[in-house]
């Protein structure tokens, strides 16, 4: 409690003062963006979609080959945890896919953020990096997959490189845009407090760019998961994407749907983690 609050509480007449327990936090009554939580609506939507899925399969609106029942998919999930599907259990598939996506993502963060910041602050870096990034960015990963395989071989490296490339561009562009979101007055303030160029980067530009970098990380990680199946098309025996591809070759839609649900669940969990990080790291976002 700050001194100000303490003083306010002391000076308030006893009878009128609300006890601290029934005090509700005040909040801006914003019309837009609506600050209220949408979690309840999201849960309701999820339940409705699950019910619709269940009804569609239960009453045979859609045949099991086209859409397996939720119960069947759940059974595959439980079985997969104990018994191998192809060359590994579900845990093995998931672990290897996680390793591929996360190592590519970490590499992308370590390289794309400095590259994007460099593009934001330096004319030379912008001139050097803009053409290659803008050249490959709109290409679908499947288009350059053969090249990546020829250059990096058929083992882990090629898969990680493909996912890395998918993560890199959105992250670099976000970091670059983040640099541009620095207020000129903040830069001027730091300079007239004696900041060197390095201090300006470390203490002003990097923190000011952080909200956009975190948004870029969310988008980049999302792209990483999107590219997983493409990456595991090449000579993989283990991995969630490979498991789905293999199942589709045998028209095992139950395994396909189970794989999709697992991939989506991982992607969603990581997105939630990123949002949590955002709330912890940039509580001031949009407030000043």
């Amino acid at each position: 409690m700050s001194g100000e609050e303490a003083a306010a509480r002391r000076s308030r007449p006893r009878a009128a003062s609300a006890s601290p327990t029934d005090r509700r936090p005040a909040a801006a009554r914003n019309v837009f963006p609506d600050p209220r939580s949408a979690v309840a609506i999201s849960i309701a939507t999820t339940i409705a979609l699950l019910l619709l899925w269940w009804a569609a399969t239960e009453w045979r609106w859609i045949g099991p080959l086209f859409l397996p029942a939720p119960g069947v998919v759940f059974d595959r999930l439980v079985e997969g945890l104990a018994r191998p599907i192809g060359d590994a259990t579900l845990v093995g598939h998931a672990a290897l896919s996680l390793f591929r996506v996360l190592s590519a993502f970490v590499l992308a963060c370590l390289t794309a953020v400095p590259a994007g910041i460099a593009m934001g602050v330096s004319r030379v870096a912008r001139g050097l990096l803009d053409p290659p990034i803008e050249f490959y960015r709109p290409l679908p990963p499947l288009a350059y997959l053969p090249l990546v395989v020829i250059w990096f071989g058929i083992d882990e490296a090629a898969k990680i490189v493909l996912i890395y490339l998918a993560c890199f561009a959105p992250l670099a562009l976000a970091a670059r845009a983040g640099v541009r979101s620095v207020a000129p007055e903040q830069v001027n303030a730091a300079l007239s407090l004696g900041a060197t160029r390095a201090q300006l980067l470390r203490h002003v530009i990097l923190p000011a760019a952080l909200p956009e970098i975190l948004t870029g990380m969310r988008i980049g990680l999302g792209f990483g998961w999107t590219t997983l199946v493409a990456a595991e098309m090449v000579a993989a025996n283990v991995g969630l994407g490979q498991m789905v591809l293999n199942a589709s070759n045998f028209l095992r839609t139950d395994l396909v749907v189970m794989g999709i649900v697992v991939i989506a669940a991982f992607a969603y969990a990581f997105d939630l983690l990123m949002r949590l990080a955002e709330r912890r790291l940039v509580p001031w976002k949009g407030r000043m």
């Binding site: 207020a183 730091a190 203490h203 002003v204 000011a208 952080l210 407030r287 000043m288």
Partner: peptide
């Protein structure tokens, strides 16, 4: 500054 230019982080 006319507008404070503080660093919110």
């Amino acid at each position: 500054f006319q507008k404070h230019a503080l660093l919110p982080w």
